[in-house]
Design a protein around this nucleic acid. Structure first.
Lengths: 222, 222
DNA sequence: CTCGTAAGTGAACAGCTGTAGCGCTACGAC
DNA sequence: GTCGTAGCGCTACAGCTGTTCACTTACGAG
C-alpha cells in the first residue's frame, strides 16, 4: 500500500545547496559523509535491498555518480558501511567491558550494551544480522563478536564463577538466546515486551550459570 | 525522438505456454497458483521487498495484470501468501504435538518441528519473522504461535514435570532462545553450527526445567 | 446457435534503479 | 597570472517496477 514515489526531485525550488567541494587532498571527507548517510538510511530502512545508491547520493547532496569516486558499486558501499557499523558496535561492547569489574559483571555489561545498541539502532541491527547480505557477501568481520563472547564466558569459568563447561558452546547458547530476544523486539517493536534486562539476566543465570551482580549469592562452593 | 518500442519481449521463441484458462466458476484456482508461486519465490529470496508482482506473474505464466483479479495490490498478495504460510507452519507444529504423548514430549516435539520447518524453508522463516513487513503490516495472526507455546509450557507445569512459574514468561524465554538459534542458522547457513536438536534440548532443560525424553536421567531427587 | 460474461491480455504511464562516459571548475603549486 | 588536476556534476542508457484501462477470448446456459 505504501506509496514511495513522492516525486522528491523538487528540482525547481530548493534544488541543492551544492554542498561546496572539499579542499584539495581532502577528497576522502566525502567518503565519510557517504558512509554516514548510508548508515542513517539503513537504520531507517532496516533492509539493505531497499537502499538505493541514488537515495544515498541525494541525502548527501551529491550527484549519484560521485559515489563511484569512492566505491566501485552499490554493494561495496553497503558493505563498507556495515563494516564501520560493526566497528562501532564492537567499540561500545568493549568499552562496557572495560568499565566493569570482575568477569561476571563484564559479561553482563557487554551483553546489556549489545541489547541497548540494538534498541537504539534497530534498523542497523537488522541489516547487520538479518539481511540477505549475510548469505551473498563476505562478512567475516562479524566473527569477532563470537570470539569475544566466548572469551568473556571463559573468564567466568576460569574464575570459578560459572560451572566449568565448553565455553564456546555456552557462549553460543547465550548469544542465540540474546539475539532471539533482541530480534523479536526489533522486528515487532509495537508488541508489549517485558524488560530486556530481566530476560538477559535470566539467560545469564540459567544458561551460563552465573549469578548476576546485585544479589551476590555464592555459587556452589567447590 | 527515440522510439523505445525496440524491446519486443522475446515474443517469438519460448514465450509462454499460455497455461490454458480455467473453466467457468474455477477462477479461484489461479489464486492458488499465484500464492504458491509467491511462496516459492519468497523462500528463494528471503526478503519480501525483493519480490516483484511481475516476477510472480511470470513464474505463474500469467499476465501481470491478472494478479489484480485476485489481489488489490502487491502488498496484499504478499500478506495473503504469508498468512497461508503461517497456517502451514502451525499445522505442522500441531500435528507434531498430536503424535507425541505427555506434555514434555509434546513441547519438545513442537519445538523441534518448528526448527525443522525453518531449516526446510529458510527464506520463508526470514520473511515471516524478520521482514520489515512486521513493522508496516498487520500480522496479528502470528500471535497464535505465542499462545500455543505458552499453553504447552503450562501443561508441563500443571503435570509437575516443570517447576511452576509464570508460564508465559518461561515460554517467551524459550521462544526467544529457539528463534535466536534458528535465526543465526538461517542467516548464516555456511557457518559450522552444532546440531540444533541438542541446543533445543539444552534450552528446554535449562530454561523450562524439563528433562527431555530419550535419556531419562532422574530430576534431582526430591 | 446465440450471446452474456467469467477469465485473462496488452499496451501504456510514470516512476524508479545502477552504471558509463564525458564535461566542468576552482584550488593551489608554480 | 598560469595551468594541471583533484573533486565533482550532467546526461544518457537500458532495464526494472506497480498500477490502470480498455480489450479480447472462449465457456456454457438458454
Amino acid at each position: 500500500m505504501q506509496i514511495q514515489s513522492i516525486t522528491m526531485d523538487a528540482k525547481s525550488p530548493s534544488k541543492r545547496q551544492s554542498r561546496g567541494r572539499n579542499p584539495r587532498g581532502q577528497g576522502e571527507r566525502l567518503r565519510e559523509e557517504i558512509v554516514a548517510a548510508t548508515l542513517r538510511m539503513l537504520n531507517d530502512l532496516g533492509d539493505d535491498q531497499a537502499l538505493s545508491l541514488r537515495a544515498v547520493a541525494r541525502e548527501t547532496n551529491v550527484a549519484a555518480t560521485s559515489v563511484y569516486l569512492h566505491f566501485p558499486d552499490r554493494d561495496a558501499l553497503v558493505l563498507a558501511a556495515l563494516e564501520r557499523c560493526h566497528q562501532n558496535l564492537m567499540l561500545a561492547v568493549q568499552q562496557a567491558e572495560l568499565t566493569e569489574e570482575g568477569p561476571v559483571a563484564q559479561l553482563r555489561g557487554r551483553t546489556l550494551v549489545l541489547g541497548a545498541w540494538a534498541h537504539d539502532h534497530p534498523g542497523l541491527y537488522k541489516v547487520l544480522h538479518e539481511s540477505t547480505l549475510n548469505q551473498h557477501a563476505d562478512m567475516r568481520f562479524k566473527e569477532e563478536l563470537g570470539r569475544t563472547t566466548t572469551a568473556a564466558v571463559q573468564r567466568c569459568m576460569d574464575a570459578g564463577l560459572a560451572p566449568t563447561d565448553d565455553a564456546s558452546r555456552v557462549a553460543l547458547d547465550l548469544r542465540a538466546a540474546v539475539h532471539g530476544a533482541v530480534s523479536m523486539r526489533v522486528n515487532q517493536p509495537d508488541q508489549p515486551w517485558p524488560p530486556l534486562e530481566d530476560q538477559i539476566d535470566r539467560f545469564l543465570c540459567k544458561l551460563v550459570g552465573v549469578s548476576p551482580a546485585p544479589t551476590p549469592t555464592e555459587t556452589t562452593g567447590e
